[in-house]
Design a protein around this nucleic acid. Sequence first.
DNA 1: CCCGTTTATCGTCGGTTCGACGATAAAGAG
DNA 2: CTCTTTATCGTCGAACCGACGATAAACGGG
Lengths: 253, 253
Amino acid sequence: MPSPPEPSPDTTAHPDGGAALPPDLVAVALSVDLVLLTVREERLQVLLVRRGIEPFLDRPALPGGFVRPGEDLAEAAVRELAEEPGLRHPPAHLEQLATYGTPQRDPRGRVVTVAFLALAPQSRTPIAGTDAAASHWAPVATADDGPGLAFDHATILADGLERARSKIEYSAAATAFCEPEFTVAELRRIYELVWSARLDPRNFHRKVTGTAGFLVPTGRFTTRDGGRPAELYRRGDASVLYPAMLRPVPRLP
Amino acid sequence: MPSPPEPSPDTTAHPDGGAALPPDLVAVALSVDLVLLTVREERLQVLLVRRGIEPFLDRPALPGGFVRPGEDLAEAAVRELAEEPGLRHPPAHLEQLATYGTPQRDPRGRVVTVAFLALAPQSRTPIAGTDAAASHWAPVATADDGPGLAFDHATILADGLERARSKIEYSAAATAFCEPEFTVAELRRIYELVWSARLDPRNFHRKVTGTAGFLVPTGRFTTRDGGRPAELYRRGDASVLYPAMLRPVPRLP
DNA sequence: CCCGTTTATCGTCGGTTCGACGATAAAGAG
DNA sequence: CTCTTTATCGTCGAACCGACGATAAACGGG
């Protein structure tokens, strides 16, 4: 991390090998932004930060930051997550979402951002929802209320939500929202809150326990949800679900 | 397009609004690369170029180039496609694939590339396969033969192929490989060549003609494939297929 | 002109999966 | 002990799929 203005060191470095980048190409600043989702307080929530500098001062934004020299993209995403006080441990799921590079998306200049989608269980998300701190959890249903998100982060959030909603259809990614051991009902609650839909407990139970490699029974039981004791499961080694979990079609009436 | 060395104009421009980018951040060169697929000569093929400069001189590579000032990412992808002699018209399908930014992926310096996946019908791909020209079509099955692809383009190509193979499962993207009017058998051939699998003609016919919004019958017929005349269809307005077209499970024996 | 070949299209049959829902099991609350 | 809550097992019909038979409509060669 040097100090003075030398804005594009890497683009002119390495003139060895007889090859150098063309001198007239456009250099951009590169950042990563994170759509970190969790299920807490019976709602799907996203981690937001309050911007402390211009532009969009005091507006909510997705957590993120600039990529450092010699740093890979996923590496930068993991580092930004670790720096956020809203997350104690690494997330259970992290994947690249999309890249946003519209020329005018940042008034300071050309900033291209690579967005990542991260899913984490509630136990790794200690920040309370109504703190005035820089980091806070916001229900995704109300993320667009109040002052709008900075930059194009509303678009990125919407893309991340759609990715998460479709990802849990055909993969075991929903278990990333769960604690290491969980009941079928707790997993079903994840699906219901992510999809904003109600699922039949009996059909859901048949589906997830009948899909090979999805859930591994522990043989132990819990009554923490009340009622008859439910068996505890761990996530299996299956990453894709086949056949997929079907998202209920939105009913018109 | 200015001329002299001024490698990072945009990162220091716009100091207005009381906000400027931090002076010590890493600037990167930004490029787009294209995985342009078509079905020709009974094979799934990808457009490759022969590199005319170092590094990877004379090695095959995905077509692409640097993003220009003021240019959006998708805009740059469309421009690069238009500049390629391998494509006469805009592709029928274009989507962002992923972004690759490992620090050492380009020996000249920090170059981050946004890869796009494009699908086009044969009629828009006039270049012959064995020309010694800069652009040529290569069957994807043999794209890894001979000298390897430049940079990390083998990884990008593999990701693009996987995206294409899964995309046609749950969307109508396979029609992007077809001419404006096509028969059910021609569409089936697309699926078979992209998946390297054989599909039952009767079940495929039932599936595609029974999925609402997938195909629109024209009422006209053709015998260009021999045998009994087949009805010509156009693509419908459905973009997602529900239920999905099921990819056959790979047979072990 | 008849006939075999090729391709298109329609149907049938059995197995799997899904949605809707009944029935039973096992805990806690009062 | 009864009521409530939740978990889990079954049942039934509809939808869908894979395998495959049957018919239709073109062509080419005798």
